[in-house]
Amino acid sequence: MSTRTLDPTRPTIVPGAQRTLRNRVTPGQTVRDSLAMARRGLIKVRRTPEQLFDVTLQPIIFTVMFTFLFGGAVAGDVASYLPIVIPGILVQTVITTSVVTGVQLREDMDKGVFDRFKSLPIARIAPLAGALLADVLRYLIATTITITMGLVMGWRPGGGFVGVALAGLLVVVCAWSISWIFAFFGVIARSASSVQGISFMVLFPLTFLSNAFVSVDTLPSWLQGFVNVNPVSHLVTAVRELAGSGTLTHEVGIALLGSAVIVAVFAPLAVRAYMRKA
């Protein structure tokens, strides 16, 4: 690509007929475009740090609230509830955070700059993938604060630093995958508030009807059926095992497989809807 400066005294524009042109995007360009868009997302976060209120405050409030609210009832006392509830809250909080991805995407898409993105020869998925990649920062913050809160309250995970770090990473990866669902809602919805509405209707059953806060065998059998197939349950179990004892089990595989399926289904849906939306 030419990097000559515009010189008004002589013609510098290469005529359209003399240009070498491609009609498809290479995988390398897709990655570069997505990273450029992610960079934009990070600059936006730096400009409007108040966007990070939810990922800093929510983990603190949820961790304290749920631990003291259910600790005595579910596990007898707060200390013995921590190993159960901290992985649960970690998963729930980070996934809840991913709803904002869809809401912000909706607000963003209403701006004129998205017209320019569409008129550029870039990978079609880049504006979406970039926004979602930038949100990984939010998941990392939420993960760190939840784990820190747990440690402050007396949680002593047996998996050690490596186990906890791997557990956190797994949660971030899964939350990013799930955010494609909300990105899809963000693209098809008319307004940001409706994105929030639909997303929470999906989110609440998914996170609460799981083993995140209570033991599955306390539930009625019909509910156990759902809870046991809920991918969030598998993620919570995987996190408990990783953080609690540092063991990698098939639950990790199930969680990652579920995430891959979600991306495979919702990423193309979201991109197609995004392209249709004029």
Binding site: I43, R47, T48, K111, G112, V113, F114, D115, R116
Partner: peptide, 8 residues
């Protein structure tokens, strides 16, 4: 209407 990013 200018299609540039307002926050940048």
């Amino acid at each position: 209407y200018a299609s540039v990013d307002e926050t940048l």
